[in-house]
Amino acid sequence: MGHGVHTQELPGIGTRYDIDAGGQGQRVSVVVRRDGKRDLYVFTGASADPDAVLELTEAHARKIAAVLGGTFFEG
């Protein structure tokens, strides 16, 4: 993966991606489970405990990715 993204295998669960989101403790970790579910960990500061965790289905993850990526135009 490119700069600022760290990948790690989690045996029996899936793959974890740590993504730098602009520093000051702001970062996002995504765990792509083998059954397709995604866990989205959001960190905004001082602690190694996440500020929010979302468990997303594949469909939800796609929707969010489309909006974040700017490919979703419908009103």
Partner: peptide, 27 residues
């Protein structure tokens, strides 16, 4: 294995430093 894996997901510890070690021990 099933109980430990589900616990890690539910306790939101997938990004913890010790989690890969736990999963490795289970395997």
């Amino acid at each position: 294995s099933a109980i430990a894996t589900k616990l890690l997901i539910e306790l939101r510890r997938l990004t913890n430093a010790e989690t890969p070690v736990i999963l490795g021990i289970i395997v």
